[in-house]
Write a protein that binds this DNA or RNA. Structure first.
Length: 585
DNA sequence: GCCGTTTTCGGCCCGACTGTTTTCAGTCG
């Protein structure tokens, strides 16, 4: 398959989604619109070698992608462009897509604004609002004009999504303030946070109470509300001062389980479940599950909903319509339940941490003390290698000096096994950063890419493959190099490299830094199929950074992994044996 | 546009809140 085009899967999924939105503004059938958006998601969730799939002419084998979308995808992969795409893009000015990002503006209103006033950009729309041109349009008024101005303002101030720790602190604040409101029996965070998504758009607070008014009062009196967007009897929505949308939903206690399921989502997962209910002549909504006669079935817990639909209970993290429903069906038929997903207290130790020896903020002794305080039984430091000059990479002499310090520390921390590793840059030609005899003296090697991100997919893949095949490589560090909300990862043939890692016994890192969470959870199923071992490593640059393993654990749960698939859930002796095995001279 | 123990047509999930409306369309999750 030719690789002359540089269009990867990520760009194609974005294109399909955009085309859906363009069709929406252009007034296409809502079902056609949904087909594009669904197709985009189906492709995003599908893991494998897209080049291969296109070569085999099998694109429409992906559920949700039919002949039409398959042909667009094939054209994009093979030529970098598609005639159908060009035709759709010609329907409306591209810049109208930006208007959709303004809260309160949907496709119909954007279209009306464009057709009546020929407004194409956010700047022009802002000007029109200030000149009071919008309020005269049919279906608009003075209030809509003001809310559009507010929406534009918010859009400019906030990027839209947040990293998990930032979202957590906002969520905890709002949860705390409704929890003690009068009449509250239960309160939980639902939505993408409960599903452990890698970034969070909105926070969903779900509260069970027969006194919704008291809950609303408590919610709206939470500290740090920038703006109230809606306040109804059972539903309110605000923007926090951090720029996060926070939704409150109050539900009667008897409906808490179906509501928790409903507001946990994902939307796609919910749609599938509601369809499943419909197939039986039933109805599923946030208030409960209803039979043909319209009688509520008993669903005191989430698992009751699943079981009544002949499904095993599905952990919230897995509810992405990513094959979990089919799996739950099988488990239910076999009277089995899901394997227990990994928990943070099962982590026994970590590799891949930094210290002041390279670019860390804490000394090695401080890091070791913190690791000991975490109750771990092994700890590996892996500072940067010599080529990483930007990060104070260690020379061969410094590595030797560091070992002396480690030997001293070992005496002070007899209960903690302290390992000396290195995070070796994978050089441009795929070799590691020290001579083999230096690498062999270390306890382990994390091989990571830190430079030349823009190599072609083919070259980047070959580069990393060479590093993974090096006998000293123990761990493949942050496999894609992505930084969430900052940059995409480098282009690689992930499926191929995972196979290489499996062949070589290399541990695939799940980098737990909340900005990385790399490897992406969407590879979870493939990783399990290949029988790969995953290591959850904090990539800590400070003592506080060690606590980031919790985010790695969240991502591992989202991958569907249990402790037996995580190397650093092993007891010390087994673990030391394991990292020796893939670090042979 | 996608899909099919309704298989090539006729469906396609569901409900709250808002604003501009006199009964509802649009937006959102």
């Amino acid at each position: 398959m030719s690789e002359k085009s540089s269009i990867g899967k990520a760009e194609i999924t974005r294109t399909l989604e955009q085309l859906g939105h363009i069709l929406e503004i252009a007034g296409s059938s809502p079902f056609k619109v949904r087909a594009f958006v669904n197709g985009s998601r189906a492709l995003e969730n599908w893991q494998g070698d897209l080049f291969q799939l296109v070569g085999d002419g099998n694109v429409s084998s992906i559920q949700g992608i039919g002949k039409g979308l398959a042909s667009i995808i094939e054209d994009l992969v093979q030529d970098g462009q598609s005639e159908a795409e060009t035709e759709i893009r010609a329907l409306i000015p591209e810049s109208l897509l930006q208007l959709l990002r303004i809260a309160g503006l949907g496709p119909k209103k954007v279209r009306a604004i464009y057709e009546k006033l020929e407004i194409e950009t956010i700047d022009d729309l802002e000007k029109a609002c200030k000149e009071e041109l919008i309020q005269s349009l049919p279906g608009f008024g003075k209030t809509s004009e003001n809310s559009i101005l507010k929406g534009i303002n918010n859009l400019r101030r906030f990027s839209g999504r947040s990293l998990i720790p930032n979202a957590q602190s906002v969520a905890e604040r709002f949860l705390a303030s409704v929890k003690d409101a009068q009449g509250v029996t239960q309160a939980e965070i639902a939505g993408s946070m409960r599903r452990n998504r890698e970034t969070i758009g909105d926070i969903d607070v779900l509260v069970a109470s027969l006194e919704p008014e008291a809950v609303r009062q408590a919610f709206l009196s939470t500290e740090g509300i920038k703006e109230v967007l809606a306040e109804g009897e059972t539903k309110s929505r605000v923007i926090s001062e951090e720029g996060m949308g926070v939704d409150l939903r109050v539900i009667e206690p008897k409906s808490f389980a179906p509501a928790l399921h409903y507001f946990t989502g994902s939307k796609e997962h919910n749609t599938r479940l509601r369809q499943r209910a419909r197939d039986r002549g039933w109805k599923l909504n946030e208030y409960g599950l209803w039979n043909e006669a319209g009688e509520a079935l008993s669903t005191p817990e989430e698992k009751d909903i699943f079981n009544l639909l002949d499904l095993a209970w599905i952990p919230p993290e897995l509810r992405e319509d990513n094959g979990e429903i089919e799996w739950a069906e099988k488990l239910f038929a076999e009277k089995k339940s899901w394997n227990e997903l990994v928990t943070a207290d099962q982590i026994q130790g970590v590799l891949h941490c930094h210290s002041t020896w390279s670019d860390g903020k804490a000394t090695l002794q401080e890091m070791v003390q913190a690791a000991s305080d975490m109750g771990w039984s092994y700890y590996g430091t892996a500072d940067h290698s010599r080529t990483a000059a930007y990060a104070g990479g260690l020379s061969i002499e410094q590595l030797a000096e560091q070992l002396l310090e480690i030997q001293k520390l070992r005496k002070g921390f007899p209960q903690l096994t302290i390992l000396q590793g290195i995070e070796s840059d994978i050089l441009q030609d795929g070799s590691l950063d020290y001579p083999d005899e230096v690498l062999e003296r270390l306890d382990y090697v994390v091989a990571s890419v830190h430079s030349s991100f823009s190599m072609s997919r083919k070259d980047q893949t070959a580069r990393i493959e060479k590093a993974l095949r090096h006998p000293c490589t123990t761990v493949w560090g942050h496999p894609t190099g992505r930084l969430l909300l900052q940059r995409d990862g480098y282009e690689i043939d992930m499926d191929h490299l995972l196979k290489v890692a499996a062949e070589e016994g290399v541990i695939v890192e799940l980098n737990a830094h909340p900005r990385r969470l790399d490897v992406d959870w969407r590879w979870g199923r493939r990783i399990q199929e290949l029988g790969l071992d995953v290591g959850i490593h904090p990539d800590a640059h400070s003592t506080h950074g060690l606590k980031d393993v919790q985010y790695g654990v969240m991502a591992a749960r989202k991958m569907g992994l249990s402790s037996t698939q995580i190397t650093n859930c092993m007891e010390r002796d087994e673990y030391l044996e394991r990292i020796k095995r893939c670090h042979q001279s």
